[in-house]
Structure formats: structure tokens, C-alpha cells
Amino acid sequence: MKENEEDHQWEDRFRQLGNIEPAQPRPFFYTRLEARLKSRMESSELAALLPWWLQKPAYALGTLGVLIALNVSVAIWQNSSNAPTVETDPGTYEAFVQDYQLDHQTVYADE
């Protein structure tokens, strides 16, 4: 009996929430919404011009990362292949052999 009464009491307390006047947004809500919708649509139109893989920041950053990695690897490869060769004195026999590539082994070397 007492429990029932207590249940009623709690129910009454909760039902008071239904008597609260509903809150309203600030005036000109529609104007602010319209402006937001317009800017959202403009940015989505702009985004539509980009390829799908550039529309998402994660993909765009990933692509940028791949491009940077490719550039760095090409630069490293270029540097290593252009390593300075040992210069010989232009007046010597070794320089003459090097210039005319006479030091190359040919298939006729044994002949």
C-alpha cells in the first residue's frame, strides 16, 4: 500500500516535466538555417568538381603523402646514380683509355 503511494508520488514528480513550456529557438531561426543550408550546398557543389578520392580529407592527405614519398625516393635515386666518378688527369694514359672506353671487355677479348 505504502509502496503504491510512493510510486504515485514519483509518477507525479516525473509528470511535472510535461507541464514545462517548450523552449523555442532564438528568433529568425529559419533565416539562419537558410544561410547554413546555402553555404553547405555551395561547398558540396565545389567538392563535386573534385575527383571522389580527393573529396575526403583522409584520401586527399593520403594522396599527398604518396606524392611526397615518390618525390623523395626519386630525388634519392637521382643523387645516388649521379655519384661523382673519380676524375683522372686528362694528360695520362688512363684518361685516354677512359675517354675512348678502351677498358671495356668485349666478346673478342680472347681473340
Binding site: 517548450p22 523552449a23 529557438p25 531561426f29 529559419y30 538555417l33
Partner: peptide, 11 residues
């Protein structure tokens, strides 16, 4: 639609 439901949604 907005003017009908804005109070409900906001509340």
C-alpha cells in the same frame, strides 16, 4: 516544415 516543427526539434 521548419516553422511547424522547429520548437519540438529544438526542445
Amino acid at each position: 516544415l521548419v516553422e511547424t516543427y522547429q520548437d519540438k526539434v529544438y526542445n
